[in-house]
Every structure is written in C-alpha cells, then in structure tokens.
C-alpha cells in the first residue's frame, strides 16, 4: 500500500502534540456523552418530589396494635406498644444482642410506646409479620420473618435467625402527641 515513510520526517513534537490533543479531546467527548446516559438512571424529579415527608395520624392505633404504610416505596411499621412490651424491650441485656442497641436509642424520649421502623427484614428484604393482631410474632413477641426465620423483639431488634441487623428506624419527628412526620 502506498505509504511513503520518507515524507513524514521533521517536526515530530508538533505532530505528537496534535495527535495527543485530538486523542484527549476525543476521550473528553466520550466522557461528556456518557454523563447524561448515566444521570438518566437517577430517580426522576417526580419520584424525588413524591418522596417528600408524610404525616401520620396516630390516634386510630390501639395499644398493642400496629399499622403499615409506604414512604418512598418502602414499608413503614408504626406500633403502639403495650406497657409490658415496652418493659420487656427495655430490660434486655443490650450486650447480649446480635446487634447491640438500647431500646431508648430506637424511640423518641417520652414517647416510648411508639415504635416506628422500616418494615423490611435486614436479611434479604422480606416483610416480617406481626404488625397486625393474629400474625405470628416470633419467639420474642415482635416480628417474625417467614422467609428465613428471623425473630425480632418488641423493639424491632434481631434476636434469632440469619438477619444481621435490627430493623432500622426511619427519620421521623413528633408534630404533637398524636401526629408524626416521617422523612
């Protein structure tokens, strides 16, 4: 093929700079094009907007009962704990737990009867039963995950089974005695 090597003698530096600049520019272009294609994977503006905090009225929840609701597509448990359940949760030796955490760190001070949790098992994401009366609550009276047998106590802490961590507490605050805002 007709390539005359002789004619490319001279100015090697200028040529190298030109090739380098072109290559860098091309690479920058590829990165620039990739940005929108990656960013489009993020939650869209409406998903973010509907993920705004929600308010929950606590008055209809009788003692010993719980309700479930969704926030940002995740299930939330709100449970009105009985005095006995609260005491049981408080008297446990924290050091003996698989994921040590005191009950007081999982509720708001002065509102110990109210427990608010993300309702997905920390093992592999199934929904533990026990919120409604009549559902199996496991060996520790809290929640029981039917998928792989994780037992949670009345503070939502893992006590037995494959789950590695307690049910997490979502961000929330009391607006007044009977209303909370989640988020």
């Amino acid at each position: 093929m007709a390539e005359a090597k002789a004619t490319q003698a001279g100015e090697p530096t200028r040529r190298d700079m030109l090739f380098l600049a072109t290559g860098v520019m091309g690479a920058a272009g590829v990165v620039g094009v990739a940005v929108p294609f990656i960013r489009q994977l993020a939650p869209n503006a409406q998903t973010i907007a509907t993920g705004a905090p929600i308010e929950v009225d606590l008055t209809p929840i009788a003692e010993g009962q719980g309700i479930k609701m969704f926030w940002r597509g995740k299930l939330i448990f709100v449970r009105n704990r009985s005095k006995a359940e609260v005491e049981e949760a408080q008297k446990v030796n924290v050091a003996s737990l698989p994921d040590p955490q005191a009950d007081s760190a999982r509720v708001k001070p002065g509102k110990e009867q109210w427990l608010v949790l993300y309702g997905a098992c920390t093992h592999l994401g199934c929904i533990p039963g026990g919120s409604a009366v009549g559902e199996v609550r496991g060996d520790y009276g809290g929640w029981f995950c039917p998928c792989h047998g994780s037992h949670y106590d009345t503070s939502g802490r893992i006590r037995k089974g494959p789950a590695p961590a307690n049910l997490p507490v979502p961000p929330y605050a009391f607006l007044n005695d009977s209303k909370i805002r989640i988020g």
């Binding site: 004619t7 490319q8 040529r15 072109t22």
Partner: peptide
C-alpha cells in the same frame, strides 16, 4: 483538530 490530524496523516502519502 481532527482536520489537522487528518491532513498530517494523509501527508505521508506521496
């Protein structure tokens, strides 16, 4: 840049 790179490369031809 591509134009000049192209010119430079093609200048190898007689």
């Amino acid at each position: 840049l591509l134009y000049f790179t192209k010119k430079r490369i093609w200048s190898r031809l007689p």
